[in-house]
Nucleic acid binder design. Structure first.
Lengths: 208, 208
DNA sequence: AGCATTAGTCTACGACTGTAGACATGCAAG
DNA sequence: CTTGCATGTCTACAGTCGTAGACTAATGCT
């Protein structure tokens, strides 16, 4: 019978979690190619070989980190998507979560910083399609819902990149409320599709 | 006397250009950390050391490549920004230039793939702010022009990432005309800078 | 012709990479 | 106690990385 003793120094599950947490932070900071297993191990207080012992290889560790981090509901939750003005809610959440130093949006950040690895990009696409796009698409009505969902993700990714990675001063120094005002209608347009929100449900004519 | 490699063309300018071209293609494919100087050199038909002889270091080579590639006018040209329906023009150009295999938009692609290097990101921000954002901002009228310009760049970057890097199937397989129809109003909204001010429906473009 | 300069290559080094195998150690049970 | 296993470390290896220094060969000049 196994004892329910409190976490000791030798605790496989806790060590595994520590490695995962260290890897997540490291990958978000420097990407797949930018960080080594020794550095990840040091962040978890173990040696490099233990990382491979638990996860098989660096690539498998990355895949697990990506899966775990992407699975975290963040901006595109059912609540936000089901709100009365989803565009505004999405914009507000995005602006809030891409403040300098924010870590809740690590999933995308990890992918952005891992663009130098072809394999990492494949893993990222898999996770994005599994979690975010599928969830979003089912929440959207109307034509081309998959495309509109993908464009919502594109806008989220683009804003995060320019704000957190590139660090465009116009976005880092802007008033959050201004950004929300500008982004809200964009998201709303994508959520609504061809029909504008509010009373009128008639299609807008296009001048192509 | 040891036999050396066969005599090559002795043309400094041409060799330099060959290295730059090889580096641009390589960086666009694998990013700063994903490609080595030996590989770049091989692509130009020279040895690795010559790369450093001409450019000092890999980092300086990257900076030069980034500067040269970013300086290429692409989507946000004065003509497009001054068109009657700039949003539609921007969207059409973006969709066209982010087709699989397109290379005219290398500048952004290089930055996206170089996110694992902090230094590369700094160089990229510098170039983006120098070329694109400044040019765009002067073309925009109204309040918060810098922020709106930055958001245009964000949307461009996001679409390119999801379409060319991540390869979201919803975007790669979509009909270009559908994407243009969805993206056009978004860009137009940012260019116009009109204030949503509550549930008011969007104003038509000034051309009518 | 001879010399100087330029264009280019070769060898090598120290640091780092991911990871395989052998080894050590703490914990629970017989 | 001893045994067995899970947990973790140490050493080492075969690469690759960027780059420094010495060397060679082709060109330009006189």
């Amino acid at each position: 019978m196994r004892k329910r003793a409190p976490a000791r120094r030798r605790n496989a599950a806790a060590t595994r979690d520590a490695i995962l947490a260290s890897a997540r932070a490291a990958f978000a900071r420097a990407g797949y190619d930018g960080v080594g297993v020794r550095e990840i191990a040091q962040g978890a207080g173990v040696t490099a070989m233990l990382v491979n012992r638990y996860f098989g290889s660096k690539e498998q560790l990355f895949a697990e980190v990506a899966a775990a981090t992407m699975a975290i509901p963040h901006i595109l939750t059912p609540e936000i998507l089901g709100a009365r003005a989803p565009g505004h809610e999405i914009a507000a959440a995005l602006v809030e979560l891409t403040k300098p130093g924010a870590t809740r949006l690590d999933g995308f950040l990890i992918m952005h910083r891992s663009g130098s690895s072809q394999r990492a990009a494949e893993i990222g696409r898999e996770q994005i399609e599994r979690h975010h796009q599928r969830a979003m698409r089912t929440a959207l009505r109307g034509r081309l819902s998959a495309q509109r969902a993908a464009l919502v993700l594109s806008l989220v990714a683009g804003v995060q990149i320019m704000r957190q990675m590139i660090g465009l001063s116009a976005l880092t120094d802007a008033k959050p409320s201004d950004l929300v005002k500008m982004l809200g209608p964009l998201f709303q347009h994508l959520v609504d599709g061809e029909r504008p929100a509010g009373g009128r449900s008639r299609r807008r004519s296009r001048d192509a």
